[in-house]
Simulated scan of single mutants.
Amino acid sequence: MARLKVVQKKSTIGTKPQHRETMRSLGLKRIGDIVVKEDRPEIRGMVKAVDHLVSVEEVE
C-alpha cells in the first residue's frame, strides 16, 4: 500500500486554529518535521487542508 511522506515547510504561527489542530493530528510540531502516513482519504483531506504549510510525496 502506498504511503505519504509529509514534511512541514512553514510555521503554524498566525494560522487558523483548525489548521494548527490538523498539523498536530498529522504529528507535525515544527518546521522540518517529517511523518509517513498511510495513503487514506482521511489523511489526504487533512493534507489538503494545510497544503500551504506542508509538502507531500508518495513513498513505498
Rank of each mutant, 00 (worst) to 15 (best):
T12L: 08
V36N: 06
H19C: 00
V6A: 04
G27M: 03
R3C: 02
I43M: 06
K48W: 14
K29D: 10
I13K: 13
V54C: 04
K10E: 07
R3G: 00
Q18W: 09
E60P: 11
E21F: 06
M1A: 12
I13W: 13
R40Q: 07
K16N: 14
T12N: 09
L4C: 02
T15P: 01
V6Q: 01
I31L: 05
I31E: 06
V56I: 10
K48D: 13
P41H: 13
M1R: 15
V36T: 12
E60G: 14
L4R: 13
L53F: 14
P17I: 08
Q18D: 00
E21K: 10
A2L: 05
R30A: 13
K16M: 13
A49D: 11
S25P: 01
I34F: 08
K48S: 15
Q18G: 02
S11C: 06
D39A: 10
T22F: 01
R40E: 06
E42A: 15
V50T: 06
G14S: 08
Q18K: 10
Q18T: 04
S55M: 12
M46A: 10
V50H: 09
D51A: 13
G27Y: 09
L28I: 00
K48V: 05
L28M: 02
E38L: 10
K37D: 08
R20N: 10
E57Q: 14
E57M: 07
M23V: 02
I13D: 13
E21R: 14
K5M: 11
E38K: 15
E38C: 05
D51M: 09
R20Q: 08
H19A: 00
T15G: 06
H19T: 01
T12S: 11
S11T: 14
M23C: 07
T22D: 04
G14Q: 11
A49I: 00
R40G: 06
R20T: 04
S55W: 02
